[in-house]
């Protein structure tokens, strides 16, 4: 009896050790698998980010170069200047406008998509992706042709007696281009969120005296909120920092933050100021993302 119990207690002692060894092996394997991503992120994201951060505290010298000495907060102080503030708020406003318009267009479409038969859904999802097959730059130039002075839009409005529409090189054109460019990023998360909702819940709402609008307001919308937030972030963030679309469709009067940062680096040759602006932009996006995760979204 005594021998038998000794043996079993030894076995009991062994088991946790085996578990520890297995755990160690498991975590080492995980690290090895993630290693390429770590290396990539450090070389192409963390290091450049640090360089930008360092530059934002540096000083521009007389020849347009940057002196990595005399550290100061001057570049950050300049953000309070009226012209910078105007550009910042204009960018925020246009990004907000783009997000809202995308939401209004995408929601009904995503709902329609989510309630079709699977075969039709897949075909329509491919249609949503098709614009990605063409280069973003090319598509923006295509809009320039459409909106241009002799373009199809103007010809149509003239034919209808609505006069010449001067859309190109205005904020309207920029928002139009941004909505066009980022709409799929709104549709897809919304579709994913709505598709997951049990259709019986809408029926239950209708059965419990909810009108179609009440059912949307009290059941469908709250349940699809993760998709609404994910889509809004996916549209708002790139719109906020957009460069290509405002450059091509916006013209000089509607400088946005993205273009302004590029100007600082290339034309004004004020790298510290450009770096500081980049960091402010990132901070705004970070705040948005944190709000999203606080709201308990899980769809990103």
């Amino acid at each position: 009896m005594a021998i038998a119990s000794d043996q079993s207690s030894e076995e009991d002692r062994m088991t946790p050790q085996f578990e520890k060894v297995a755990e160690k092996k498991e975590s080492r394997r995980g690290f090895l698998l993630a290693l390429p991503s770590y290396v990539y992120l450090i070389i192409f994201f963390v290091i450049p980010l640090i360089i930008v951060l360092v530059y934002s505290f540096a000083t521009r010298n007389r020849f347009g170069g940057t002196d990595l000495s005399g550290w100061n907060l001057e570049s950050y102080e300049r953000i309070a200047e009226p012209i910078v503030r105007t550009i910042l708020f204009r960018s925020l406003w246009l990004a907000f406008l783009t997000t809202v318009i995308c939401l209004l267009i995408a929601y009904p479409f995503a709902y329609f998509l989510a309630t079709r038969r699977p075969a039709i859904r897949n075909v329509m999802l491919v249609f949503v992706m098709i614009p990605f097959w063409t280069n973003f730059l090319v598509r923006n130039f295509a809009w320039r042709v459409i909106l241009g002075n002799d373009g199809p839009l103007t010809k149509t409005t003239e034919f209808l007696g609505l006069g010449t529409q001067e859309l190109l090189f205005s904020q309207k054109a920029v928002v139009l281009g941004l909505v066009y460019g980022y709409l799929p990023f709104m549709i897809l998360p919304l579709y994913a969120a709505i598709e997951r909702i049990d259709g019986q819940l809408i029926e239950a709402s209708r059965d419990l005296y909810g009108s179609a609008w009440q059912s949307f307001r009290n059941v469908l919308l709250p349940l699809s909120m993760p998709g609404v937030i994910a889509g809004s972030i996916l549209v708002f963030i790139p719109s906020m920092g957009a460069y290509v679309t405002p450059e091509i469709l916006g013209g000089a009067k509607t400088t946005l933050l993205g273009s302004y940062i590029v100007t600082q680096f290339l034309t004004a040759r004020n790298w510290p100021f450009g770096a500081a602006l980049s960091f402010v932009l990132m901070a705004i996006m970070l705040v948005g993302t944190v709000i999203y995760f606080r709201k308990g979204g899980r769809t990103l």
Binding site: D198, Q200, L201, E203, A204, S205, D207, L208, V219
Partner: peptide, 10 residues
């Protein structure tokens, strides 16, 4: 009013 098969609680 209906009691649904899988309850369909919100």
């Amino acid at each position: 009013n209906t009691v649904f098969q899988n309850y369909a609680l919100f």
